[in-house]
Design a protein around this nucleic acid. Structure first.
Lengths: 293, 293
DNA sequence: CGGTAGCTATAATGTGATGTTATCGTAGTT
DNA sequence: AACTACGATAACATCACATTATAGCTACCG
C-alpha cells in the first residue's frame, strides 16, 4: 500500500523486457546486466502486487496485466518525450502508429491517410498486421489505432464500426456468369476458385458458406492478398471472390455475391488510452473518410 | 541529450515543491531534508536544460515551463495511480476537477454537474476560483476543466465558447423603470446602484459603460456575488445590474439592459492535456447542458 | 540601521539501493 | 546424454542520494 507513483526507470526496463520477452536480450539493449534487469522487474511486480509474466516452457509471455502495464508504460514514455521536447522548445515530432492489414491500407485507408498527412504534422507510422496482430498491437500500446474486421474483440479494446463490406465474384468479362447482375452461391457450383491459403479468414468464411449451401467447387489456386488473387483471376486460372472495395483490373468484371455474410471493418483503440493530438486527428480522418459508404 | 524518460520521483518532488513554492515546507511534506529536495529539483532542471523557477525577492515563482511541467507531472501521477488501481483490480476512484466562479456553479453548471454525477462514477471535485484563478488552475493541471468569462486566454489554454450572457437591471416591481420592457444606460441616470466592489470585472465593465454614456449614478452598496447583490436590491437599497441567468427573488423584477456588452462563458481545458474518461464525460455534459440557450 | 528570522543554496560526509560477477537450475536441442 | 540458452539467486562492489552543517540572501522589526 505504500505506493506513490510508478518508477519510470522500472517502466522503461519493463518495456524493453516486454518487447523481447527475454531478460538477456533486453538487458543488453538497456546496457545492463541480466540480473540487474531481472531484479528491477521483480521489484516492479512486487510493488504492484501483480504477476507480470509467466513461463511457458522456456519462453516467457506477458500476463494480461503485463500487457496493460506495457501499454501504459509506452504511453507514459511517449508523453514524457513530448513534454521534454516542448519544454526545450524543440518541435515535437510525435509519431502516430496505426496497425492494419494490407487490404485495409490498399483499399480503405488511402483517403484517410492522405488527409491526415495534410492536416497534421505528426509522422505516420504504419504496421502491417493480421487480425490478431492488430488487436495485440493496440492492446499493448504498440499502435495507437488499429483497423480490421473482427468477429469479436477483447474487453480492453474498443471498436468503432466504420463500414460494411460485401463480397463480389470476379471473372473474365466473357464468363457466362458475367451476364448476371448478382450471383448467388449456387451459381458457383463446379467452378474453380482462386482463394486465400487454408486457415485465412476469408478462405474459411467462403468455404464454410459454400459447404453449407451444398455447392461443390475446387481450388484453382491459392494466393495471399486481394491483389494476387485478382492477378490469378485475370490470368484465367479461375474465378475469385474478393471484398467489394477492390479495384478490378481491366478485362475482369465484378458481380455482387449474395449469401456470404458482409464484413464489418472497425477502428480499434485501446480502452482507457489517452490519445494525443496526432492520434485523435488520425482517428477523426479515418472516421470522416471511411465511414460514409 | 542522453535523456530517456523523466524520473517520476523527481516529478513527484517537483509537484510538492511547485505547490508550496517553498523548498523547506515541501521537503517536510515529502519526509525529506530540504537540501535533498533542492538537489532533486536542480537535477531535474539540469536534465531538462530548462529553468523551472525564479526568485522574486525572497519568494519563488514558477516559470512558464515550470507550470507546464507541473501540469504534466500531475497528469502523469494521476495516470499512474489509475493504472495501479486497475492492475490490482481495485475500482479506480478517479476524481475530476473543475475550476469556476461561484456564479458559474450557481447559475450555469447545475444541470451539467447533475447529469455528470448520474452518468459517471468519477468523483467530482470543484474549485471556486476567480477568472485568473480558474485559468491558473487549468494551466497548472490543478483542474481538468475550467469555466468562466475571459477577455483573453493564454496560448496554452483552450477555450470553447458555451453561452452568451446579457445583463439585466433588477428592481422592485413597483419601480418606475419596471414598466419598461427593456432598459438603456440613460435610464439609470441618477439611480443608486448595488454593485460589486471596485476592481471586480462586472463593476469595471458597468462603470465604464455608464461613464462613456455620460450617465451619472452613485453607489448604493457594494456586495460580492450575484446573490448578495440581489439581496440588497430586494432590501430596497438600490437597483442592481446582474447577469441574466440569475434567478430573481420574489418582489423584484428584471428587465434586459441594452448597451452593456454581453459576456461569453467559455469552457477551458489545457492545450495538450490528455483528459481521462471522467474529464471527457464532464466536458461532454457541460457542453450538452450549457451551450444551447 | 543593525539584528534576526526564514529560507535557499552548496559542501562534506555517510549509507543503502542498485549494479556486477559468479553460479546453479531447468528446459529444450542434437 | 551432453550441450546450449536462459532465468533466478547470492555475494560482493559501487555509486547515487540522503543527511548534517553552514554560508549567503532578503525582508522585517525594534
Amino acid at each position: 500500500m505504500p505506493l506513490e507513483t510508478l518508477r519510470s526507470d522500472w517502466l522503461d526496463a519493463f518495456v524493453a523486457f516486454a518487447e523481447h520477452r527475454n531478460f538477456t536480450h533486453a538487458a543488453r539493449e538497456l546496457h545492463l546486466s541480466q540480473p540487474a534487469l531481472h531484479v528491477q522487474i521483480a521489484k516492479l511486480s512486487e510493488e504492484l502486487g501483480v504477476t507480470l509474466y509467466r513461463r511457458e516452457g522456456r519462453a516467457l509471455s506477458l500476463t494480461h496485466q503485463g500487457t496493460q502495464l506495457l501499454a501504459f508504460a509506452r504511453e507514459a514514455r511517449e508523453r514524457s518525450r513530448e513534454i521534454v521536447a516542448e519544454l526545450r522548445g524543440e518541435p515535437a515530432d510525435a509519431a502516430v502508429t496505426m496497425a492494419a492489414g494490407e487490404g485495409a491500407y490498399l483499399y480503405l485507408l488511402g483517403d484517410a491517410l492522405r488527409a491526415f498527412t495534410r492536416r497534421s504534422t505528426a509522422r505516420l507510422q504504419v504496421l502491417t498486421r493480421d487480425r490478431q496482430g492488430a488487436i495485440d498491437a493496440v492492446r499493448s500500446g504498440e499502435a495507437h489505432l488499429g483497423m480490421g474486421s473482427f468477429s469479436s474483440l477483447p474487453d480492453d479494446v474498443l471498436g468503432t464500426p466504420l463500414v460494411e463490406i460485401g463480397s463480389c465474384v470476379v471473372m473474365p468479362s466473357a464468363h457466362r456468369l458475367a451476364r448476371k447482375r448478382a450471383i448467388v452461391l449456387a451459381d458457383l457450383a463446379g467452378e474453380a476458385l482462386v482463394v486465400p491459403p487454408a486457415g485465412r479468414p476469408h478462405r474459411t468464411a467462403l468455404a464454410q458458406a459454400l459447404e453449407t449451401a451444398g455447392v461443390a467447387w475446387r481450388v484453382a489456386a491459392e494466393a495471399s492478398g486481394w491483389d494476387l488473387m485478382l492477378h490469378f483471376a485475370s490470368l484465367g486460372v479461375g474465378l475469385t471472390v474478393v471484398n467489394d472495395f477492390c479495384r478490378i483490373p481491366r478485362g475482369l468484371v465484378a458481380r455482387p455475391l449474395r449469401g456470404l455474410p458482409s464484413v464489418r471493418y472497425d477502428l480499434l483503440s485501446r480502452r482507457g488510452a489517452r490519445l494525443g493530438a496526432g492520434a485523435l486527428a488520425l482517428r477523426q480522418c479515418v472516421v470522416d473518410k471511411t465511414s460514409r459508404r
